[in-house]
Design a protein around this nucleic acid. Structure first.
Length: 199
DNA sequence: AACGAAGTCAACCGCTAATTT
DNA sequence: GAAATTAGCGGTTGACTTCGT
């Protein structure tokens, strides 16, 4: 099925960190032609990079409205809650955090939150909603196997995440959705009971 | 000040899914 | 319908930075 090579001959591609000049060329090209056909982007923009690399650079760094660093407490809380529900589906989680990329969320989870989670687990406190959240998150993080299907292996329950949250609704980045979700999460137990009765 | 360990994060890799020819 | 191509995902790596001794 998929080809290993992106075909652009035997020429040696640049690897590693992007230079300011490369960034500029890529941004310029995309501004004019749009962000598609990455293989073409790489060659026409005069970048000695593979298409994949260009795409990643654009999505994670050059794209407009990217927020970098300073993940707020609210965002962190949301990541934890979403991870509890979705597992390692970073792109889905990132999709609910405007301006954040899947790579950033993944890195943040691996370097900050996973540690935090395991620490909390070691010294459990009163059984608040937050606490139950973090415990499940840890379990999920270790249990979740990679899967590209959003609906086939919901992290800690067996309900259909897409159906439940209606991810098809574009533009639902705002607080409204977040509030709705957080409200729902407060009632996790009730929700799971309901879901299991459906399944 | 020097050095090794640990932490962070950008980028790469391998794979699958979706789309096009 | 099959093959080729493109897009996108999550896991992993490695360079760089920060921290502790």
């Amino acid at each position: 099925m998929a080809r290993k090579n992106d075909g652009s001959a035997k020429r040696v591609m640049n690897k590693g960190a992007w230079t300011a000049e490369e960034d500029r060329k890529l941004a310029e090209y995309i501004e004019i032609h749009g962000a598609k056909r990455w293989k073409t982007v790489a060659s026409i923009a005069g970048l000695n990079r593979c298409g994949k690399s260009c795409r990643l650079r654009w999505l994670n760094y050059l794209r407009p409205n990217i927020k970098r660093g300073n993940i707020s407490d609210d965002e962190e809380d949301l990541i934890i809650r979403l991870h509890k529900l979705l597992g390692n589906r970073w792109s889905l989680i990132a999709g609910r955090l405007p301006g954040r990329t899947d790579n950033e969320i993944k890195n943040y989870w691996n370097s900050h939150l996973s540690k935090k989670m395991s620490q909390k687990e070691k010294k459990p406190q009163t059984s608040t909603a937050q606490d139950t959240t973090t415990k499940s998150a840890t379990a999920t993080a270790t249990a979740t196997k990679p899967s590209h299907k959003a609906s086939d292996d919901c992290a800690d329950t067996n309900f259909d995440v897409n159906e439940f949250f209606d991810f098809s609704a574009e533009g639902s980045y705002g607080l409204e959705w977040v509030n709705k979700f957080l409200e729902l999460d407060e009632n996790t137990t009730a929700k799971q009971e309901k879901v299991s009765s459906i399944v």
